[in-house]
Simulated scan of single mutants.
Amino acid sequence: MSPTVTPFSELLRRRSRSAAAPAAWTGGAHDLLAGECDVADYADLLGQYAVVYDALERAAERMADHPVAAPFVTTQLTRMPAIRADLEYLVGPDWSELCCPTPATTAYVRRLCAVAATSPGAFVAHHYTRYLGDLTGGPTLARLLEDRFGFDTNGVLFTIFDQVADPAAFEDTYRAQLDAAPWSDAEREAVLAEVDLAAGLDRALVASVRRPGAGDDRAAALLPA
């Protein structure tokens, strides 16, 4: 009897669960919003993510024609228009001028710019970490924001994937694409390692919003020398 081979998507799911990723809005961010934060704190957090998603979606544009990365690139997941609309509602039309990235956010974006626009494996690792977290944790976050701040649609557009009719089916397709990607064992290990790194960068970002400076040293320490 031949040994059972665990699909890569399952290995990634197990690794990401232990690393608290997919991280977007389901881990530290959820804890922050469930604590003693106000609308300004939430707007600050969303402003930090605006910088991250802008970098990630620019990387997606560059990866859209890559034979390995292209299957994961879809406008169904694009978050920047919703983030912009939420921040205009929460902060005003000049939100981008008022958003000051923390050093932890800058470290996160520096990593994205260094690897996600050039390495298909690294791109998929960051794409998986952010977007599957959004898709899974979005409804929970929306309810939390609605209960805490009285938001209805404005302010929670980021959490609404109106282009994804069936999130469960979408996730199944995404995981099938992970399994079909033609990576070697070494390349798969690199993807797993990048998911760990992405989760750590996310935690540092949230910590830097919770208490400015708190996540900065952690984010710097995560990055390769």
Rank of each mutant, 00 (worst) to 15 (best):
M1T: 11
P7G: 10
L11I: 05
L12A: 09
L12K: 06
S16E: 10
R17G: 12
A21R: 10
A21Y: 04
A23C: 12
G27D: 04
G27T: 02
G28H: 04
H30P: 01
H30S: 08
L32I: 04
D38N: 14
V39H: 04
V39A: 02
A40E: 13
Y42H: 02
A43R: 00
L45G: 03
L46Y: 00
L46W: 00
L46S: 08
G47D: 08
Q48C: 06
Y49G: 01
A50T: 01
V51D: 03
V52F: 00
V52L: 00
D54V: 14
A55L: 08
E57I: 05
A59E: 01
A59K: 03
A60D: 05
A60F: 03
R62L: 08
D65M: 06
V68E: 13
A69M: 13
P71E: 12
V73C: 07
T74C: 09
Q76A: 07
T78A: 13
M80P: 02
A82C: 06
D86C: 02
L87E: 07
Y89G: 02
L90E: 04
G92C: 08
P93V: 09
D94Q: 10
W95P: 07
S96W: 13
T102E: 15
T102V: 12
P103L: 09
P103Y: 06
T106P: 04
T106F: 05
A107Y: 04
Y108D: 04
V109R: 02
R110L: 09
R111D: 02
L112F: 10
V115R: 05
A117V: 01
A117P: 07
G121C: 12
Y128T: 06
Y128C: 09
G133I: 09
D134P: 11
T136A: 03
T140Y: 10
R148F: 09
F149Q: 02
D152S: 15
D152A: 09
T153G: 07
L157W: 03
F161H: 15
Q163I: 03
A165S: 14
A165V: 13
A165F: 09
A169W: 01
F170D: 12
Y174T: 00
Y174G: 01
D179H: 14
P182C: 05
E194S: 15
E194V: 04
E194T: 06
D196P: 01
A198E: 00
G200M: 06
A204D: 03
A204S: 06
A207M: 14
R211C: 07
G213Q: 03
D216Q: 12
A219R: 15
A220E: 11
L222N: 11
L223G: 08
L223I: 15
